[in-house]
Amino acid sequence: MSRPTSLTPPPDVKAPDPHPSAPPPGTELGEHYDGCFGCGEEQENGLRLRTRVGEGVSVDTEFVVGPGHQGAPGLAHGGLLTCAFDEALGMLGFLLHTPAVTARLETDFRRPVPVGSTLYIHAWCAGVDGRKIYAKAVGRLDALDGPVAVEASALFLSVGFEHFVEHGRPEEVRRAMENPDVLKAARAFEVNP
């Protein structure tokens, strides 16, 4: 039997239900900020991930690997794959209606991810214990039931929206707060922007 790590929820912690006003399954979450490298449209070689709400507290994210995402010739860069998982896992906070930041993320690479392929990432919340949000994800190549290419476990910490205001660059925070989608998300988190 393996020892629990900081990525393993305590034995008595159960997977949560989505917040009562979380969007229903099938809803596309869209970008949380247009300048985000993971989901924003403004980054030239950004990942431009698209995420839909799944059942319970889960999301399904698609990452189309382009030439600007390669590390070794013709293969996705491992750091960018980790970034894609961080983005997908981070979207779970929208379903819990809590802003959260990555505390720890462990990625296991099972097989290469070629340029031109699509990585289908399914991420889910394994449990919440106070401010700690435990999450897991699996990424499959070119089909929802394709071979597993990457797996991840993560620990996120719930933070107040003021965390981003206090630590972010003021001009970027101002620009984000001018975005109606960001304001909508802030209101969903019951925060007064």
Score class of each variant (00 low, 15 high):
residue 182 V to W: 13
residue 19 H to M: 02
residue 39 C to A: 11
residue 86 D to T: 13
residue 169 R to H: 00
residue 26 G to M: 07
residue 94 F to R: 15
residue 163 H to I: 00
residue 183 L to W: 00
residue 67 P to E: 15
residue 119 L to D: 07
residue 187 R to F: 12
residue 33 Y to I: 01
residue 178 E to P: 00
residue 20 P to S: 10
residue 80 L to W: 03
residue 178 E to W: 00
residue 152 A to D: 05
residue 63 F to T: 00
residue 4 P to H: 06
residue 60 D to C: 12
residue 89 L to K: 02
residue 5 T to W: 02
residue 70 Q to S: 12
residue 139 G to R: 03
residue 117 S to V: 10
residue 185 A to V: 15
residue 47 L to E: 10
residue 115 V to F: 03
residue 36 C to T: 10
residue 115 V to N: 01
residue 148 V to M: 01
residue 177 M to S: 08
residue 177 M to P: 00
residue 25 P to H: 06
residue 142 D to Y: 07
residue 24 P to L: 13
residue 125 C to D: 02
residue 184 K to M: 11
residue 151 E to Y: 01
residue 51 T to E: 03
residue 104 R to T: 12
residue 55 E to K: 15
residue 188 A to V: 03
residue 6 S to E: 11
residue 145 D to H: 10
residue 55 E to I: 03
residue 135 A to I: 02
residue 111 R to S: 15
residue 125 C to I: 02
residue 63 F to W: 15
residue 134 Y to M: 05
residue 59 V to S: 07
residue 77 H to R: 10
residue 119 L to F: 09
residue 25 P to T: 09
residue 183 L to F: 02
residue 55 E to L: 05
residue 156 F to A: 05
residue 30 G to Y: 10
residue 40 G to R: 04
residue 170 P to F: 00
residue 186 A to W: 06
residue 156 F to Q: 08
residue 106 E to I: 06
residue 1 M to L: 10
residue 58 S to K: 03
residue 143 A to N: 11
residue 129 D to C: 03
residue 98 T to A: 13
residue 108 D to H: 12
residue 17 D to W: 06
residue 59 V to N: 05
residue 62 E to Y: 01
residue 85 F to Q: 14
residue 76 A to R: 01
residue 116 G to T: 13
residue 1 M to I: 08
residue 149 A to H: 01
residue 113 V to G: 01
residue 8 T to N: 09
residue 68 G to S: 13
residue 146 G to P: 04
residue 149 A to M: 03
residue 37 F to T: 06
residue 19 H to G: 04
residue 139 G to S: 09
residue 103 A to N: 12
residue 32 H to E: 14
residue 141 L to A: 10
residue 143 A to R: 15
residue 154 A to M: 02
residue 6 S to K: 09
residue 124 W to C: 04
residue 76 A to H: 03
residue 122 H to P: 07
residue 161 F to M: 14
residue 143 A to V: 05
residue 86 D to L: 03
